[in-house]
Design a protein around this nucleic acid. Sequence first.
DNA 1: ACCTGAACACCGTTCAAGT
DNA 2: ACCTGAACACCGTTCAAGT
Lengths: 235, 235
Amino acid sequence: MTTQERPRAPLSKERVLAAAVALADAGGVEALSMRKLAHTLGVVPMALYKHVRNKDELLDGVVDAVVGEIDPPDGGAGWKDIVRRRVLSARQVLLRHPWASRVIEERTRARPDPTPAVMTYMDSMIGIFRAGGFSIDLTHHAMHVMGSRLLGFSQELFEDSGPAQPAEPPPPEFAERFPHIAELVMGISHDAGTVVGPGCDDQFEFEFALDLVLDGLDRLRRQAGRVASSSSSST
Amino acid sequence: MTTQERPRAPLSKERVLAAAVALADAGGVEALSMRKLAHTLGVVPMALYKHVRNKDELLDGVVDAVVGEIDPPDGGAGWKDIVRRRVLSARQVLLRHPWASRVIEERTRARPDPTPAVMTYMDSMIGIFRAGGFSIDLTHHAMHVMGSRLLGFSQELFEDSGPAQPAEPPPPEFAERFPHIAELVMGISHDAGTVVGPGCDDQFEFEFALDLVLDGLDRLRRQAGRVASSSSSST
DNA sequence: ACCTGAACACCGTTCAAGT
DNA sequence: ACCTGAACACCGTTCAAGT
C-alpha cells in the first residue's frame, strides 16, 4: 500500500501564520515557539525559515492576521458612531485572541512603523475623523488620546477581583493596608444587580471609558468649529 | 598578601533588586536574565535563589522598586490638580526606566492582584478621588478610564516618526497606500514651531490626553452632584 | 541545488554531589 | 547544613554535511 500521497500539504506563509494563530489561541503566546509551531505542522523547525525570515517576522505576520479580522467600518450615523462600532468590533476580535494585544504592543514598539495591517487600520480611522470634521491637528491629538483603545484594548491595571465571588469581603489586614480599595470592592459587590459572575463588567467599563473619550473629542471638535480655531496651523 | 576581606558585599534582596533595575536600565529588559544578573553581582546564578523564589518574584520586586520611586502626592489645589501632578511625576519615573511599563503590565496581568507597591499606589489614588467628592461607583469607573495612565504611561500605537527629520515627505507609494497618515504626518511637520527634534511632542500629547480624561471625569462628577445620583447606575 | 540534523549560544531551574 | 557545578529541558538560529 503506502499510497504516500503528499503526507502533508505544502507549506505556505498563510498556512504557517494560521497555524501560529491557532497555536497561540490554544496555549497562549508562550506556547508559540518556532519549534512547537514546526511540530504542529509536522515539519522540522528549519523548514519554517523558508516562509519567514525569523521569529520577529512570524510575529509581525500574526499581528496582521489578527488585525485583518477586524470588520471594515460599516455605515453608522456620524463619525462617533462609526468609530465606536469599529472599536467595539476590534474588541471582539481581541477577545477571541486574548494574547494578541500583548503581541501587537510588542511588535509595534519593536518596529520603526506599525505592521502593514495596523497602518491600514490607522489610516482608515484617521480618515473617519477627518471626514467627521476634525482638523489635522485635532485628528492627531485624537489618535494619541485613543491610543490602543482604537484597536479595542486598554491595559487595565485595575482588574478588580476577576472571577471572584460576588461579595467576598476582603480579610481585615487587607482593609487596613488598602482601605480605599477595600471600600471600592465592597461598594461594587453590593450593587451587583447587573453583573452576576465577576465583580466587574469589563464590557461596560470599556464602553464607559470609550464614550468618555469620544465625548471629550466631540466637545473639542465643536469648540474648534465655533471658535474658528486660531491655533498654529489648521485654520 | 591575599587579604581576602569579603571580596563581595553580602547579597540581600535589596541589592539584588537594585542590581536588576540597573541592569535593565543599561541593557533593556531582555538583558535582565538570572544568569547575567548573577554575573553582575559576581555570584553564581543559584545564589540568587536564596533571595528570590524565581524570576517572576524578581520581576515583581523590580516593579515595586520602580513604582516606589514615584513621589507621594504633594499639596495641590483640588483632586484634579493632585492627580495630574502625581501622574506626571509617575511619568517622569517611567521615562527614567523605559522598560518598566512593559514589566508592570506583564506582572500585573500574571498575578491575581497587582504587586504591593502598585496596590498602595492605587489605594492612594482612589483616596484622592473619594476625597474629591467622587461616589464609589464613579471612582470605580474613573480607575478604569484612567487605566495605565494613572501610572504615567499609555501604549501609543501611533508613534509617528520618532526621531525623524522635521519635514521628510513620505515616499509617493506611501502616500498612496496610507493617504490619511501621510496627510497627518505632513500637517504635523509643517507647524513644527514648538517641536524641533522629533515630529511629535510626546509630553504634550500625554498631557493633552490626560487633561481630556480628567475634564471628562470632572464633568461626570459635577453632573452626579447636581442630579443627586440615584443608586447603581446614576440615572 | 535543496533539505535538515547536529550544534551553538543562550534561557530558568532542578538536583545531586561535594564541602 | 550549606553551597554550587553539572545537568535538564527548553529556546532561536547557524552551519556544515548529506542527499
